[in-house]
């Protein structure tokens, strides 16, 4: 069970208050009709599955009902940071995509 910092409630809360909401920073194409089926499929279905740093969304379901982002190490379950929607992560993977 993780301990997660909600950037809106501004404190650590138990994992059971949250729901995971998948990979973060996926932007919806502004003009879906203008892109190919393949590009659209990438937006729809293709997700990272790294061993190491992962930027992902969580929902504080039992608390403030806000979605936010977390940078988590999928191997050790360490959470390096959580940050609000619209913000950029401070911790990012190096060139090889791993930490």
């Amino acid at each position: 069970m993780l301990l997660i910092h909600c950037p809106y409630c501004e404190e650590m809360r138990e994992e059971e208050e949250f729901s995971p909401a998948g990979q973060a920073h996926i932007e919806r194409p502004l003009q879906p009709e203008d892109i190919s089926d393949e590009q659209w499929a990438h937006y729809l279905f293709f997700r990272k599955n790294p061993r190491g740093l992962h930027h992902e969304m969580w929902l504080h379901a039992a608390g403030c009902r806000k979605y936010f982002n977390a940078t988590r190490n999928t191997a050790t379950y360490e959470i390096m940071e959580t940050y609000k929607m619209g913000q950029a992560p401070r911790v990012t993977a190096n060139e090889e995509g791993q930490s």
Binding site: E27, L59, Y67, M85, G86
Partner: peptide, 13 residues
């Protein structure tokens, strides 16, 4: 409700 919030909070704030 979560679906509506997701779109509002992440894509169309």
């Amino acid at each position: 409700l979560q679906w509506l919030e997701l779109w509002h909070q992440t894509e169309w704030p």
